[in-house]
Computed example of a mutant assay.
Amino acid sequence: MSPDRPVSSDPAASRPVTLITGAAGGIGSALARTLAATHDLILSGRGGEKLDALCAEVGGRPLTLDLTRPETFADALAGLDRVTNVVHNAGVVDLGAVGEQAHAVWTHTLAVNTVAPAELTRLLLPTLRQERGTLVFVNSGAGLRANAGWGSYAASKFALRALADVLREEEAGNGVRVTSVYPGRTATEMQRKVRGQEGAEYTPGAFIDPQTVAATIAFVLNAPRDATLTDVSVRPGPPA
């Protein structure tokens, strides 16, 4: 807890409240399980049995958000009180050459991967400032280098990196920390989809374990207040 935050006699008030988007996915669910013992969790997704089961398992509060409709976020967030940290983890990917992808793919990808995090952040900034909290943007190696066939996804992730960089400068004086995390290929259902689009076999053991990425994000959130981890890349380690 920040020394600048008022001390409360209520034990629950001393625990950070962390909102995770894409919570039912591989990295999101691993992060929820990692943080459950020390954070109060708001787990966002499209709803459904998987999200409900995760909330029941970790004691999280479900938050249904349609990331393609940012105009609905304000109403969805109306019942929230404290939010200390936000982990923007949700994302979509569709591979294809620029000359082959219609504008609908670009619009959808940018809406979910960039516009939704920007609007959700805007709405939650007042409480993040009050809590002196942390914003984590789960980016991608594609946010550092754009390769052929990855145009729409890389563009959304480059824009997400710019959003984080701008927020870091704008909110430093308000005590809000901002970190971009760049995982390499991670063993998730999204990666299974990507491998299918690449016409390649999906072998989970060849990729980073989602729990490893979750542990990295947890380290960022729990880092001492005298430091901000601005950019963290997570790459596969050497063979065991």
Rank of each mutant, 00 (worst) to 15 (best):
T64H: 01
G48T: 01
L80I: 06
E201I: 01
T21H: 02
W150I: 08
D165W: 07
G199D: 06
R235Q: 13
R192P: 04
D40Q: 15
L128Q: 11
I208P: 11
V181S: 09
V92W: 01
K157H: 10
D75L: 04
P238K: 10
L63R: 01
G60I: 03
R5K: 06
V136Y: 09
V115G: 14
E198V: 10
V181E: 05
R192W: 00
T38A: 08
N139G: 08
T203Q: 11
V98P: 07
S233N: 10
R122C: 04
S152W: 03
D52G: 03
G99L: 12
L110Y: 11
T84R: 00
A148V: 12
G79H: 06
A155V: 15
D10C: 09
D10L: 09
T21M: 04
G79K: 01
T230Y: 10
L77V: 02
L43Q: 05
A159T: 03
N174P: 04
D94F: 11
M190C: 14
L95T: 11
V166T: 15
V220C: 13
R15L: 14
G47L: 07
A218T: 07
R185M: 13
A97P: 06
V58C: 13
S8I: 04
D231Q: 13
D94N: 15
D75P: 09
R177C: 04
G196L: 05
H88R: 06
